[in-house]
Computed example of a mutant assay.
Amino acid sequence: MSETTSRVLQLLGLLQSRRVWSGDDLADRLGVTGRSVRRDVERLRDLGYPVHASKGHGGGYQLGAGAALPPLLLDPEEAVAMAVCLRVAAGGSVAGVGESALRALSKLDQVMPSRLRAQVAAIHDATTTLTSGQSDELVEPDVLMTLARATRDHEHVSAGYVDRSGNTTDRRLEPYQLVTTGRRWYLLCFDRDRDDWRSLRLDRMTDVMARGTTFTPREAPDAASYVRRAITASPYRYVARVRYQASKEAVAQSFSSASAEIDADGPEACIVTAGADDPEGMVPWLALPGVEFEVLEPPEVIAAVRDVAERFLRAAR
């Protein structure tokens, strides 16, 4: 590979790694003059890469989107990460993505060095994905992409939303973060009409539309914690708080992040918060960690644990 070709590829990698580069920064990173940078930019344009240039404060070189998708330049770690993600996406929770992911994976696999293919295969062979088998929870790709772009650009969104009871309401939203549990996708957003934060399931959203106007970001809650709390407690009639005589790490092996919120209570104890509509149905689930525990609240769950325990004692006698 010639020195010029190598430098052009290095320039492409830099442009793909950051939104805007000044000419001086690129020249410094590449060890060349500004004139050489301008020549290499023209070479990239000739190859089909839309490199935009702007002057003034905040200006510089920026890799834009073109009519066609030119080849991406990936380092080994990026190539392995992309291949693994494509394998997961082939059986994932976004409608219509499986076939496209397989096509993209086949193209990537064709040009990937054998040592990297071996790494991808090792990760794939060591991984098993549990699927829910509920096709009605699939998210439309257009919905996902619209919300992802609106989140990035701080753009207002309007959508219809179907709640658990089947009622549909119109929402005016400020999107902040997409969160996935693997099985479902959620959006952390600020609901302008309700003047409060919400976590909404993407598969229940309809007529999602970016409005073209932007908002000034607010101080947002931690997306992962907010969504975890919303899906483990908020939808249920009874919310239990239980102290376990074991570390957070040990107890977390028995519960998924989508079913319980776990907080450390010292080095050798933790508190689990989880919800259910049937207190008695929670009891066997609460016993899963196999360690001493105490139900702190509510009274209905405390009573259910007592009733089930007495029933087991009678069975043992």
Score class of each variant (00 low, 15 high):
residue 93 S to E: 04
residue 106 S to K: 12
residue 34 G to N: 11
residue 17 S to L: 02
residue 132 S to G: 10
residue 16 Q to F: 07
residue 52 H to D: 11
residue 127 T to H: 13
residue 124 H to P: 06
residue 5 T to P: 01
residue 47 L to K: 14
residue 61 Y to Q: 11
residue 120 V to K: 13
residue 103 R to T: 11
residue 32 V to Y: 04
residue 27 A to K: 14
residue 58 G to M: 06
residue 39 R to I: 05
residue 128 T to A: 11
residue 49 Y to P: 07
residue 103 R to M: 08
residue 16 Q to V: 03
residue 66 G to P: 10
residue 70 P to E: 05
residue 2 S to F: 00
residue 113 P to A: 00
residue 66 G to M: 08
residue 46 D to I: 12
residue 69 L to S: 05
residue 119 Q to Y: 08
residue 73 L to G: 01
residue 101 A to W: 05
residue 10 Q to H: 13
residue 97 V to F: 06
residue 103 R to S: 03
residue 32 V to K: 08
residue 125 D to S: 12
residue 123 I to E: 00
residue 118 A to V: 15
residue 132 S to N: 11
residue 120 V to L: 01
residue 46 D to W: 09
residue 9 L to Q: 06
residue 82 M to E: 15
residue 45 R to L: 09
residue 28 D to A: 13
residue 100 S to G: 03
residue 59 G to S: 10
residue 25 D to T: 10
residue 53 A to F: 03
residue 82 M to L: 15
residue 119 Q to N: 14
residue 64 G to C: 03
residue 118 A to W: 13
residue 137 E to D: 05
residue 84 V to N: 09
residue 92 G to Q: 07
residue 70 P to M: 07
residue 18 R to P: 03
residue 22 S to Q: 13
residue 104 A to E: 09
residue 66 G to K: 12
residue 94 V to G: 01
residue 110 Q to R: 15
residue 28 D to W: 01
residue 62 Q to F: 02
residue 30 L to P: 08
residue 62 Q to W: 01
residue 47 L to H: 13
residue 43 R to C: 08
residue 18 R to K: 15
residue 26 L to A: 09
residue 8 V to E: 06
residue 33 T to D: 14
residue 133 G to L: 00
residue 55 K to F: 00
residue 7 R to F: 02
residue 145 M to Y: 12
residue 126 A to R: 10
residue 127 T to W: 15
residue 17 S to I: 02
residue 135 S to F: 12
residue 111 V to Q: 00
residue 44 L to T: 07
residue 104 A to Q: 13
